[in-house]
Design a protein around this nucleic acid. Structure first.
Length: 289
DNA sequence: AACATTTTCAACCGCAGGAGT
DNA sequence: GACTCCTGCGGTTGAAAATGT
């Protein structure tokens, strides 16, 4: 079939011949150059002015899903997968909204991930992927596996140090820096995806990939105590951010602590994916297998 | 190595909603 | 309010790549 088609079906496009199908290198170059000089947006105008024989829609899609410089390539990390599972529980198939919490990932990519990986799992389990039963299966089986993967990644990483950019950003947000902490109850690691979600408000998550450090906050480690080097302990309070790496089995090596100011407020108890019962439920699965 | 089957993912389509007239 | 145009979203398709036999 020809890659040229005449589009007269709606008012968006001229009757001129429009190309369809895969983009060529020349088209990509043309589009990239045009946007670098004129900026994004006004896609129909762009399509006409750039000399591309494509619809505005097609140009927009190509740019946003493929050419845009900050697009992240490669497989989704366990952290990202966990976040997708969690956010889908909240919002359902609202891919663009979910994508907002995964910098560098597109709604199309997340949608593809869901359809090819998640729904495949559902089929294998013979469960409707929109059912409550499937959500339960994800919580009890898949999430612990992802958490394990995250732990493994961290465990094997020899260059585990927090990104330099994090401290200043948090301090800029009113967090007070504390140091000298050592170990912490590993149960807290259960809340990592929630923390990534929060941290993503402050910084580019891609930084986390290069360090594999764990970031968590006191609001999720409700039962845990941070233990400092002199073995005195203090509770993790809501809004505190900790930076730690996985040391030996089950122990997180605490590196930094950013104490929230007293005005910090965020109600994480409303999050359907993470409640106290679940955390203990997950723990069982995660550490039995 | 050759073919069949499955998986992945880029790109398309139709629809909804907002802005402008 | 009605109409057109444009943009963005979510569902779907199908070619290419990967995997299995």
């Amino acid at each position: 079939m020809s890659n040229i088609t005449k589009n007269r079906s709606n008012g968006n496009e001229e009757g001129a011949e429009q190309r369809k199908g895969p983009w060529t290198l020349e088209e990509d170059t043309l589009l990239t150059n045009y946007i670098s000089h004129n900026g994004e947006g006004r896609w129909n105008l762009l399509a006409k002015s750039s000399g591309l024989k494509r619809t505005g829609k097609s140009c927009r899609l190509r740019w946003l899903n493929y050419l845009k410089p900050d697009i992240k390539r490669g497989n989704l990390t366990p952290q990202e997968q966990l976040l997708i599972l969690e956010l889908h529980t909240k919002w359902g198939n609202r891919w663009s909204k979910i994508a907002q919490y995964l910098p560098g990932r597109t709604d199309n990519e997340i949608k593809n991930y869901w359809r090819t990986r998640v729904q495949k799992q559902a089929r294998q389990l013979n469960i409707d992927s929109n059912s409550h039963k499937f959500v339960e299966a994800v919580r009890s089986l898949w999430v612990p596996r992802l958490i394990h993967k995250m732990k493994d990644n961290t465990y094997t990483n020899t260059k585990a140090s927090p990104p330099d950019s994090l401290g200043p950003i948090l301090q800029d947000k009113g967090f007070t820096h504390e140091s000298g902490f050592n170990n912490i109850d590993c149960s807290t690691s259960i809340s990592m995806s929630q923390d990534l979600h929060k941290i993503s408000q402050f910084m580019d998550l891609s930084d986390l990939e290069t360090t594999s450090s764990l970031y968590f906050d006191g609001s999720q480690g409700r039962s845990s105590q941070c233990v400092s080097e002199d073995y005195s302990s203090f509770p993790c309070l809501e809004g505190d951010y900790m930076v730690a790496t996985m040391g030996n089995s089950g122990i997180l090596q605490m590196q930094d602590c950013y104490m929230a100011d007293s005005t910090y407020e965020e109600d994480v108890t409303q999050d359907p994916m993470w409640n106290m019962d679940d955390i203990w439920h997950f723990k069982e699965y995660a550490y039995l297998s």
